[in-house]
Design a binder for these strands. Structure first.
Length: 424
RNA sequence: GGAGAGGUGGCUGAGUGGUUGAAAGCGGCGGUCUCGAAAACCGUUAUAGGGGCAACUCUAUCGAGGGUUCGAAUCCCUCCUUCUCCGCCA
């Protein structure tokens, strides 16, 4: 969530930045006026509390001296009732402010290109050559079926549409990819973790996935638990309600998990095979760092994600999302897309974002900063996340690009130590 | 699932209704001593919010949320969580 102070002190600036994302200024105005009455309530309530505290002390002194304090007690009874009313009103105001803040996105960084929709995203890098096939390349579903390594039909029987069943060398290849990516990201300085995939509502809120995106999540009502849409959620919550030391920053984690998405509202879109699935595998990267270095860390993380694709020899491009397309919690975001020869289009395989202090404020993830005057102060860390990478769409690109005229798949060199075979 | 015991500051740990935001110890920081270090000694050391240019000051916080009371770390209720024992189980 945004810092209420920046709205209080510079509402116009906030409105201006958010307008670039297509946000209405009315929400900000509402928060601004609610905050005003909130401050007023605080002042009135605290003044009465001050009175109550001091008179209560006087009562204590009288009682100790065995003197009568009935008048003061009666008076304070009234004061206490008044405080109760004010605090009730304050709580409601707080709740209302929070309601609005939960739906106001992060401010885009000034380096982010302006634009209204994904059409105005900017391609900043393209890597590798597009291959020329002497035959018509098959799509990943067809390849998977012919080689008996992917079975979407049986997956549908087990769970419904939007799920995958990997078989034999297909399963093995998937596992190799995951192992390879974890290995590489370990070398890049990320500490490997295995996290819960079912998380509490509080954890979802800290990651700013709920309430805004609640409909996109699998939710277990009996236990009030959510299936994570990305390991970002569980890894980010490792340091919720903690105060880190500045010496230990940046803290970098990588973790492999299954990811679950309901994809509500996108029925009938990209239904083929892996293009849009409810469950997929992903190695996630998370960095907790000081505010001063977060944009630097963003570039590093982007290069760590790209590094995987380069070693795999996958043709990809990086696009910088425009203000109208960056994610809710992000201030700046890059997408990495891989080329599908069968679909003849780019597929998003990774997204790398700097969420600045937007999530850490909700998560109360702070660090202790020692100022120039020797006094220490706590500040919110900046949190970045990136996929490094998701396997499903990468698998599409990989299978399609490495198919042979005979209908086989050549396993990229770097994966062979993990698969134990060269050809499918 | 059943029975029981806990959750207090960076950590350990006192505190059962009134100067307790909280003893003591450890740790951290600053200082004295020393050529330097250790030891010893002295001082200092929570977070958030409000007001003030500032010195400073006020309010809240002892797992969370309610309640009782003029006043709650302390009493009552609900929830969460940790540990121990029993049952079930990968």
């Amino acid at each position: 969530m945004l810092d209420i102070k920046i709205i209080r002190e510079n509402a116009d600036l906030v409105k201006g930045r958010l307008a670039l994302r297509g946000e209405e200024p009315s929400k900000i105005d509402k928060v601004f006026s609610l905050d005003k009455s909130r401050l007023d309530l605080i002042k009135r309530s605290e003044k009465l509390k001050e009175l109550r505290n001091s008179v209560s002390d006087e009562i204590a002194v009288l009682k100790r001296g065995k003197q009568n304090a009935d008048d003061k007690i009666a008076e304070m009874k009234k004061v206490s009732d008044e405080i109760k009313l004010l605090d009730e009103e304050l709580k409601n105001t707080d709740r209302e402010i929070d309601q609005y803040l939960s739906y106001i996105p992060n401010l885009p960084h000034e380096s982010v290109p302006e634009g209204r929709s994904q059409d105005e995203n900017v391609e900043v890098k393209i890597w590798g050559e597009r291959k020329e096939f002497s035959f018509t390349p098959l799509d990943h579903v067809e390849l998977g079926k012919r080689l008996d390594i992917l079975d979407f039909e049986r997956a549908a029987k087990i769970s419904g549409s939007g799920f995958a069943l990997y078989k034999g060398k297909g399963a093995r290849l998937e596992r190799a990819l995951i192992n390879f990516m974890l290995e590489e990201q370990g070398k890049n300085g990320y500490r490997e973790v295995i996290t819960p995939v079912l998380v509490s509502r509080r954890s979802m809120e800290a990651a700013e996935k709920v309430p805004k995106f609640e409909e996109d999540m699998y939710y277990m009502e009996k236990d009030d638990l959510f299936a994570i849409p990305t390991a970002e959620v569980s890894i980010l919550n490792i340091h919720r309600d903690e105060i880190l030391k500045s010496e230990e920053l940046p803290l970098k984690y990588c973790g492999f998990t299954n990811c679950f998405r309901r994809e509500a509202g996108s029925y009938g879109k990209d239904t083929k095979g892996f293009l849009r699935v409810h469950q997929f595998n992903k190695v996630e990267l998370i960095t907790f760092c000081e505010p001063e270095s977060s944009y630097e860390e963003l570039e590093k993380m982007l290069s760590h994600a790209c590094g995987i694709l380069e070693k795999l020899g996958v043709h990809y491009r990086v696009i910088e999302l425009c203000t109208g397309d960056i994610g809710f919690a992000a201030s700046k975001c890059y997408d990495i897309e891989v080329w599908s020869y069968a679909e003849n289009k780019w597929l998003e395989a990774s997204s790398v974002s700097n969420c600045t202090d937007f999530q850490s404020r909700r998560a109360m993830a702070r660090y202790r900063k020692t100022a120039y005057n020797g006094k220490s102060k706590t500040e919110f860390v900046h949190i970045l996340n990136g996929s490094g990478l998701a396997t499903s769409r990468l698998m599409v690109a990989l299978l399609e690009a490495n198919q042979t005229a005979e209908g086989n798949i050549k396993v990229p060199e770097v994966l062979r130590p993990f698969t134990g075979f060269e050809l499918i």
